[in-house]
Amino acid sequence: MAATTFHHALGSIQSHACYSNSEFQSGRGILSVKMISTGVGVDMQLITRGSRCSGSWKLGAIRASSLHSSVADPVQLPSNGNSSDSRKKSNETALILVRHGESLWNEKNLFTGCVDVPLTQKGVEEAIEAGKRISNIPIDMIYTSVLIRAQMTAMLAMTQHRRKKVPIVLHNESEKAHKWSQIFSEETKKQSIPVITAWQLNERMYGELQGLNKQETADRFGKEKVHEWRRSYDIPPPNGESLEMCAERAVAYFKEQIEPQLLSGKNVMIAAHGNSLRSIIMYLDKLTSQEVISLELSTGIPMLYIFKEGKFIRRGSPVAPSEAGVYAYTRSLALYRQKLDEMIH
Score class of each variant (00 low, 15 high):
57 W>C: 05
162 R>K: 13
59 L>I: 00
175 E>G: 13
293 I>C: 14
11 G>S: 08
193 I>S: 11
36 I>M: 14
104 L>M: 15
203 E>P: 10
102 E>V: 00
326 V>A: 02
299 T>I: 03
6 F>M: 09
66 S>R: 06
342 E>A: 03
8 H>M: 08
28 R>M: 11
81 G>I: 01
236 P>D: 03
336 Y>E: 01
7 H>V: 12
23 E>G: 12
128 I>E: 11
89 K>R: 15
216 E>V: 03
189 K>S: 12
13 I>Q: 01
61 A>S: 14
135 S>M: 07
177 A>S: 15
119 L>S: 11
24 F>P: 01
155 M>N: 13
303 M>S: 07
135 S>C: 12
102 E>K: 06
217 T>E: 03
59 L>M: 12
274 G>F: 06
60 G>D: 03
116 D>C: 06
185 S>T: 04
21 N>Q: 11
334 A>E: 09
112 T>P: 06
242 S>T: 06
107 E>Q: 14
62 I>S: 08
227 H>I: 01
19 Y>E: 14
60 G>N: 07
212 L>S: 04
116 D>S: 01
13 I>K: 00
101 G>Y: 08
287 L>Q: 06
336 Y>N: 05
35 M>L: 10
116 D>I: 06
34 K>L: 14
216 E>I: 01
8 H>V: 03
13 I>G: 02
158 M>Q: 15
285 D>E: 15
289 S>Q: 14
342 E>I: 02
207 G>Y: 02
228 E>L: 10
233 Y>T: 02
211 G>W: 02
275 N>E: 11
51 S>M: 04
260 P>V: 09
240 G>S: 04
92 E>P: 02
279 S>G: 09
138 P>R: 08
124 V>A: 05
9 A>N: 13
323 E>S: 09
270 I>L: 11
61 A>R: 09
154 A>Q: 12
130 A>M: 05
319 V>L: 11
132 K>Q: 13
235 I>K: 06
87 R>Y: 09
87 R>A: 12
335 L>D: 10
148 I>M: 14
14 Q>F: 06
96 I>F: 06
234 D>L: 00
39 G>E: 14
135 S>W: 01
56 S>P: 00
51 S>V: 07
241 E>N: 01
139 I>V: 15
60 G>K: 02
121 Q>W: 06
92 E>M: 11
182 Q>D: 04
276 S>Q: 13
89 K>C: 10
8 H>G: 00
140 D>W: 02
165 K>V: 09
319 V>P: 00
298 S>C: 07
12 S>N: 13
249 R>Y: 08
271 A>R: 12
78 P>A: 05
146 V>M: 13
135 S>F: 00
283 Y>E: 14
5 T>P: 00
316 G>F: 06
315 R>F: 04
146 V>A: 13
336 Y>Q: 07
97 L>E: 10
314 R>W: 05
80 N>M: 03
170 L>N: 08
42 V>F: 04
218 A>W: 01
225 K>M: 11
63 R>K: 07
169 V>D: 03
30 I>Q: 08
290 Q>C: 05
276 S>E: 11
322 S>F: 00
6 F>V: 13
268 V>F: 10
191 Q>T: 02
